[in-house]
């Protein structure tokens, strides 16, 4: 059943692309090109949490595969690996067995930063966004420490505790705000607002909102609305978390 294998391979590649945070048009186009290179005429449809690939066998029998996409972050390294592989497969069109093996190995062998580097990223981003919004050196140090707290929560604590989505963001924002209250309270930080906003930049859905607008401008309206609602929901979670710890702190 060569067509089943081809369909599975295309769907798997699309899944990995979606999981790495690629745009909708990139996912649809990549799967389409890959299967077209193998001589098929696929139909591909994707929205942020679902991917559907359908094709007709030469005898006219339609087959369809659907994958649900769990919530995911952004992983540019995986995205580049998927993109390179897709280009290579379209150019060389290797035998099916070999191509299947290449797609299967996609998720395994890719480089990922160790946790301490990711934490460093959180610290650096929070500290320098605080400076960027107008904080002084002491604000930067406190925002960096707050960023460390949020990073520890997001990367290390929320997964084993199985907190995801709305409440993950809510608790992250509460931690950020509580820590910045603490640091201004003990006299390390000066401007509470700059510290809080700098730290919240690592949680805030500004990127999601801009991506949503890009999807809408691009014509993927369902995906755009989906992402925009997600952004508003995340913003609501953040402000609830902040209000929660502000009232606790008072």
């Amino acid at each position: 059943m060569e067509y089943d294998d081809l369909l599975n391979m295309g769907t798997e590649l699309g899944y990995q692309l979606m999981y790495s945070g690629a745009e909708i048009y990139r996912v649809e186009e990549s799967v389409n090109r890959l299967l077209t290179a193998y001589g098929l005429q696929p139909q591909v449809f994707a929205i942020p949490n679902c991917l559907i690939v359908s094709l007709n066998t030469p005898s006219g029998h339609p087959i369809t595969s659907m994958r649900r996409i769990p919530s995911h972050g952004t992983d540019i390294e995986l995205l580049e690996a998927c993109n390179d592989l897709c280009r290579r497969l379209c150019r060389e069109v290797p035998p099916l067995e070999e191509a299947k093996e290449l797609v299967r190995r996609l998720g395994e062998g890719h480089r990922a930063h160790p946790t301490w580097v990711l934490l460093m990223g959180y610290v650096v981003a929070a500290a320098f966004f605080a400076a960027f919004f107008g904080g002084n050196f002491r604000d930067m140090v406190s925002a960096g420490l707050c960023g460390l707290g949020v990073g520890l929560w997001t990367l290390c604590l929320s997964k084993p505790l199985r907190v995801a989505g709305f409440f993950q963001t809510l608790i992250g924002a509460a931690i950020a705000s509580l820590l910045s209250l603490l640091f201004t309270g003990i006299g390390l930080g000066v401007n509470l607002n700059y510290i809080t906003i700098g730290t919240l930049m690592v949680l805030v859905p500004g990127m999601a909102l801009t991506n949503a607008m890009r999807e809408i401008v691009n014509g993927d309206i369902i995906s755009g609305i989906n992402r925009a609602s997600e952004a508003i929901l995340t913003a609501a979670a953040i402000s609830l978390g902040v209000i929660l710890s502000l009232t606790m702190g008072m």
Binding site: G73, T74, D75, I76, E77, L78, R111, A112, H113, V117, L118, M120, G121, Y122, V123, V124, A125, A126, A127, F128, V202
Partner: peptide, 9 residues
């Protein structure tokens, strides 16, 4: 910093 968080090498 954000580049590191997004796993860019």
């Amino acid at each position: 910093g954000f580049g590191l968080v997004f796993n860019i090498h």
